[in-house]
Design a protein around this nucleic acid. Sequence first.
RNA 1: CGGGCUGUAGCGCAGCUUGGUAGCGCGCUGCGUUCGGGACGCAGAGGUCCCGGGUUCAAAUCCCGGCAGCCCGACCA
Length: 469
Amino acid sequence: MASPNALTPQSEDFPRWYQDVVAKAEMADNGPVRGTMVIRPYGYAIWERIQSEIDARIKRTGAQNAYFPLFIPESYLSKEAEHVEGFSPELAVVTHAGGEKLAEPIVVRPTSETVIGEFMAKWIQSYRDLPLLLNQWANVVRWELRPRLFLRSSEFLWQEGHTAHATLEDARAYATRIQVEVYNAFLEEVLAVPTYIGIKPPSERFAGAINTLTCEGMMRDGKALQMATSHELGQNFARAFDILYQSEGGASELCYTTSWGASTRLVGGLIMAHGDDQGLIVPPALAPIQAVVIGVRDEPEVNEACEHVRAQLEDAGVRVVLDAGRGSFGRRVTDWEIKGVPLRVDVGPRDLKEGVVSVTRRDTSAKISWPVAGVGGEASSLLASMQRDLFERARVWRDSHTTEVGSLAQAIEAAQNGFAKLPWSLVGPSDEAALKDQALTVRCLQRADGTIPTSDLEEDLVCLVAKSY
RNA sequence: CGGGCUGUAGCGCAGCUUGGUAGCGCGCUGCGUUCGGGACGCAGAGGUCCCGGGUUCAAAUCCCGGCAGCCCGACCA
C-alpha cells in the first residue's frame, strides 16, 4: 500500500513543500509579530547540533566566546558611512523606554561590528594584544518585508565573530581560515552540503567590508543559498572606532578587523539541500536523533526487545530514541520520515523469531536485516557511509546543476535552474543590472582552479550566477 | 508603497448570490478493537463567523468604514 503524500511534492510547489516540512516535522511556527519565528524543540535540537559543531571549530582557530549587548546607541551605527547606509532600511529602533522618550534612539543590533569595535578600541593597546579573536552567539534583528521561516526572519539566531589584527595579511588569512576551516569544513563534513567557495562581487559585499568570502550551496530546486560569510573589514571600522595599537617600533597603528557569521538560515539550507517528497533528510553527523527504534506491535516481548536494541545502539554511541506503542505502525513510520531520522529500526514478532531487526535507511529507503547482536556496530558503520553518500549525492546534484557558459545570454539561460559559470571579465556593471532584471545575481567569484581569490581585480576569475534565496 | 485575493473551531475550508437553529474534513478527548507503510467503530469537547457602525422583527450573509493577513512588483544572514 503506497501511502498518500503527507506533503506537497517538491515538483508541484517547492515553497509549499518547504512550509509543509517545517510545520509537519515540528521545526518552527510563525511568531505573533510578522517575520518572527518560534523555533520548536526538534528545530532547536538541530540548531543546537549546528551550534556545537561550529562552536568547536571556531574555538580551534583560537577565538573565544563573549557577549555584547542587544541595544546599540544609534550614533555608533553612523560612525561607518557604508555600514549605516547598508543597514538603515532594516533597523528596528527603540525611541521610548521607561515611559519616556529617549534622548538618543537605541538600535536593536542588526550585527555588532560597531559595539564590538568600540570595546576593541578600549582593550587593544599594544601589538601584544593582537590578534584579538572574539565570537558571540546571539540574536539579531533585521526588519524583513518578505519573511520565510529559517531563511529570512526579522529576528534570527547566529554566531558573529569579530577579530582585530596588526596587518592586512593576517586579517585576510584569518577570515579565509574561518571560511575554509570552520564554515566550509562544517558544511561538507556535517551538513553534507558541497559549496562553491569564493568572494562576493563588490555589489554584493557586506556594508563596510573591503572583501566578503562566501560559501554558496545548491538547493533541490536549483536555487543557490548563501550558507555563511566572512568579511575583511580592512581598516574601515578601526578608523571609525579608533582601534589603534602601538607597534614594536612605538608607532600608533590602525588595526585590520574581520567579521564572520553563520545563522539559523543553515536549518533552511539543510531542509532544501537534502529533503525529498517524504520530508527532511538529516545527515547522520548532524542528526539530533540518528536512529529510531519502532516496535511494530505493542506487546511485552516486542517492547522488551525494543528496549534491548535501543540500549545497544546507545552503547555504540548512536543518538537513538525508542517509539513503541503509540498509534499505528504506518503513522509512526511516516512521522519519523518527515523528521528525516537517518535510520529506522523496526522490531516485530517476525524479526524476533529470526533474531534480527529490519532496518530502513532514510535516504534511499533501502531495507536491510541485521542480527540483533550486531546492531550497534552495523548502525555506526552504516551511519558513516550514509554521511558520505549524502554528501556525494549533493555533490552530483550541484555538479549536474552547474553549466559552464561563454556569454551573458547563455548564463541567463543556464541559471534558470542552477549555477552558470562564466568568465568574470564578461560581466560588466551594466550586466549585473541585466542579471538582476532576471532575478539572477553573481553568487561568487573564484579562480579558474576553484580557489579563493584575494580580490575581484585578479585576472582570469570566473563567476557563478544563479537564482538565490 | 502600486496591483490581485482572503478573513467562519487548532489547521484547511463550505455556507453569503436568495437574511431565519453555524457546518464539513483533518486534528483533539474518552472507551474499545487494531498495529509489518498515514487504522476503524462508538461517544464527546471545541465558535466574540476580523473589528465598528448601519439596514431589518431577524445579519456569517446586505450596506458603509476600519483593521489584519496572503500572493505579485523595488532591499537582504
